[in-house]
Design a protein around this nucleic acid. Sequence first.
DNA 1: ATGGTTTGTCTAGTTTTTTAAACGTGGTAC
DNA 2: GTACCACGTTTAAAAAACTAGACAAACCAT
Lengths: 189, 189
Amino acid sequence: MDFDVGARLRAIREEKGLSQRQLAIRAGVTNGTISLIEQNRNSPSVASLRKVLQGIPMSLAEFFASEMPETEKIVFRPHELVELTTEIQKRSKGRIFLRQVGGDLRNRTLQILHETYEPGADTGRTMLQHASEEGGLVIEGRIELTVGDQIEVLGEGDTYLFDSRQPHRFRNPFSEPCIMVSACTPPYL
Amino acid sequence: MDFDVGARLRAIREEKGLSQRQLAIRAGVTNGTISLIEQNRNSPSVASLRKVLQGIPMSLAEFFASEMPETEKIVFRPHELVELTTEIQKRSKGRIFLRQVGGDLRNRTLQILHETYEPGADTGRTMLQHASEEGGLVIEGRIELTVGDQIEVLGEGDTYLFDSRQPHRFRNPFSEPCIMVSACTPPYL
DNA sequence: ATGGTTTGTCTAGTTTTTTAAACGTGGTAC
DNA sequence: GTACCACGTTTAAAAAACTAGACAAACCAT
């Protein structure tokens, strides 16, 4: 959970094939600063770290993006997907089936859902507080997607991608069910 | 791109209903520190910022994850997907078609691909250096997935999810093409 | 009103980070 | 060999962040 700023910076720098001095010049700091940060002998100010990362280049968000979990199970058969249906069902007019890939999302940064929206299905207006993105592809049928003020109808093969903090809504006003795959990152934390 | 650390901290603190002093006590810093940070009159060291955020509580990753651009385009029709085919093609035996949702991945944290693996297609062993996760669903056909030592064959409706830093490989030794959707986070800068 | 409390801001002094320049090491050319 | 570079590390001085405490404004109860 707590992570080693120095080790992370060193790993990134070396992975990019940069020397401390090369990076220092590109970042607008001295090589000594980078040396000390990498040894965790000082804790850089956000201002300094930002400068250093601009020389890579990498955003602060990327730099602090969470560690890797141990992934034991990799492949999930259709019957192994976790049904998330109940939660959403209460807020919805039609039936929505959400089947999640991978049961335990703790330590995960990616949530993938196999979704079915029956005729009449409606998620209502949704909006996430934390930063995350959401995207997907329509496999079968049609769906109406509203993001902010924008309303779009997606058909087979159509895709979408947006920031989850914008208010959004999925609705199936058509007579055929709609099957899609969606991905969301990060699920939480 | 650059974000206002002070404004972000203030927004979070106020959203949690904490005063500068309350947060200061929980974080183990002084209220003055928080005041100065919020006014952007000094740039906190990572060590200090971590302490402050622990009092909220919030991870550094979450704190910096709010660097998000305005998402203009949301829906992408099949012909609007960006062809990434050429790159991979060189390393592959069979043909692999990768169609990316959303053209510009800068400032994006989610990459969604609509993929087709023709018979004989093979990505070869791949392995990403930075932390990220990869998952997907098979829409049509079959594909062989190798992650680490594990080899699995996925058919229609089967899904997968793993850490991209593990060496992995997609291969289609079958006679029918395989169509799938995959999601990856974060896409390499 | 009045006193007590809480709010955010500010200042002087201390601590920490950052700079600039030197140091030691390992490689390479001559 | 030895005269270079380029590398990461170290150090004293300069710069910036942090602390402790004071300050005024706003709020609430009496």
